[in-house]
């Protein structure tokens, strides 16, 4: 049996109605929509899924870690409801996009957990999409990392993984402990069962502070000295609808073809 740690992040629901998504151009910040709960980033759900498949294949203890506000406990609960064994919330609000800071805190939390053979992250968080946290954690822990993985197999103390590259994929073998970030090709995350939600609700989930895990923020400097968000805006989408007329369906189709040719679409 191996020990797996999965890092998950709570984000704005990507499926919320677009009209609810608002930003404040003054402060370059997203205004959290009222009444719509945050969800686990879909890629991180898939990371949990990948861990669960390993557990089913060869047995594993899965611990989920998240850094966020106190409501991030719901991200852990969701993962537990899917089938993870334990979860930890590190309470600290990170302003959006500082991957180094996130990875630093997660690394400290992972060191505190001590026992780990495999660390799985999502390919990237579905909000800022930086995709750096997994690699920085590996670097900090001094262990190998494979990003954008579509398949993970555990063979004794080694891992066999399929890593996606631009024009195909590579099969790689690496020793454990290691960090793997999973791509969405790993497959759909399972929906928690009702009883899964019930047993997750009954679990006590410890909450750690930065002091608990020995994080010294002055160690890594100020976020704003590393990253400046220049402009945050919602793209304007222009939609025009033209109805192509014709006496018969065939004529309408011919007119449509003509118009498409004019527009150099076909």
């Amino acid at each position: 049996m191996i020990n797996i740690i999965v890092c998950v992040k709570q984000i704005l629901d990507p499926e919320m109605p677009p009209g609810k998504f608002k930003i404040d151009p003054e402060s370059n910040k997203v205004i959290p929509p009222e009444g719509i709960p945050l969800v686990v980033s879909p890629f991180d759900e898939q990371a949990v899924e990948a861990a669960l498949r390993i557990k089913e294949q060869c047995g594993a203890k899965i611990t989920v870690v998240t850094v966020g506000e106190s409501s991030a406990v719901n991200a852990v609960k969701h993962s537990l409801a899917m089938g993870a064994d334990e979860g930890i919330v590190v309470e600290h609000i990170i302003e959006g996009y500082d991957s180094l800071l996130t990875a630093y805190i997660l690394t400290k939390a992972i060191e505190e957990i001590v026992a780990y053979d495999l660390i799985i992250c999502g390919r990237e968080a579905a909000d800022w999409g930086s995709g750096q946290v997994g690699s920085i954690i590996a670097e900090s822990l001094g262990i190998p990392v494979v990003a954008r993985t579509r398949k993970i197999e555990v063979m004794d103390s080694r891992l066999k993984v399929e890593h996606i590259i631009e024009d195909g994929d590579e099969s790689l073998e690496l020793p454990m402990p290691a960090v793997i970030t999973v791509s969405y090709e790993i497959g759909q995350a399972r929906i928690p069962t009702g009883w899964g939600v019930i047993s997750a609700a009954r679990k006590k989930i410890p909450s750690w502070s930065l002091e608990d895990i020995g994080v010294d923020l002055s160690q890594i400097g100020d976020t704003s000295s590393r990253i400046k968000l220049l402009k945050l805006f919602t793209p304007t989408r222009e939609r025009g609808c033209q109805i192509i007329e014709g006496k018969t369906a065939a004529e309408a189709a011919a007119n449509l073809a003509l118009r498409l040719r004019e527009a150099k679409v076909i």
């Binding site: 929906i191 009702g194 939600v197 019930i198 609700a201 009954r202």
Partner: peptide, 12 residues
Amino acid sequence: VEEAGAIIVPGL
């Protein structure tokens, strides 16, 4: 309701 100790299963 959850604070009071009940369990809620949504999406079901």
